[in-house]
């Protein structure tokens, strides 16, 4: 299983673990044991230089900070266009960029409450995405 609509980077242990959890509908980030900085999506190393990281489960609800409707995407995404990309702030303050579905550009608003759900793009590809709560 790979992450993303398109990607080619080698799968590290960190990403494999993240994907396994996402398949089970858990959104996992990493937190530094030294300075307590939290990362979602996860990182293997902290920006403070530490590599002592532990997993935490992030909340799956939040609100939309901003969005765009991508009409002309990169060549590799042509078959998915148009799509709406949003940045949401989750209830613990962490921020995530993903597609949002279940809305139209007309009904989508900044501050709209959303939930993060797992989405199988194809049999071997998975992403997280936003949907309006309710």
């Amino acid at each position: 299983m790979k992450f993303g609509y398109v990607s080619w980077l080698p799968q590290t242990e960190l990403v494999s673990k993240f994907i396994e959890e996402l398949k089970n509908k858990r959104l996992m980030g990493t937190q530094c044991k030294q300075c307590a900085a939290k990362y979602l999506p996860p990182r293997a190393h902290c920006k403070c230089g530490s590599h002592e990281m532990e997993w935490f489960e992030a909340p799956k609800t939040g609100k939309i900070l901003t969005y765009t409707l991508v009409t002309f995407g990169p060549e590799s995404m042509a078959k998915y266009a148009p799509y709406i990309i949003a940045v949401a702030e989750l209830d613990d303050g962490s921020r995530l960029l993903a597609h949002i579905t279940g809305v139209t550009p007309k009904t989508l608003k900044v501050d709209m409450r959303v939930q993060v759900v797992s989405h199988h793009v194809t049999e071997d590809r998975i992403v997280y995405k936003f949907r309006p709560t309710e």
Partner: peptide
């Protein structure tokens, strides 16, 4: 970021 943002098809205009 090719690990976590590019995989959503975000572009520079985006």
């Amino acid at each position: 970021d090719t690990r976590w943002e590019y995989p959503f098809g975000i572009t520079f205009p985006g």
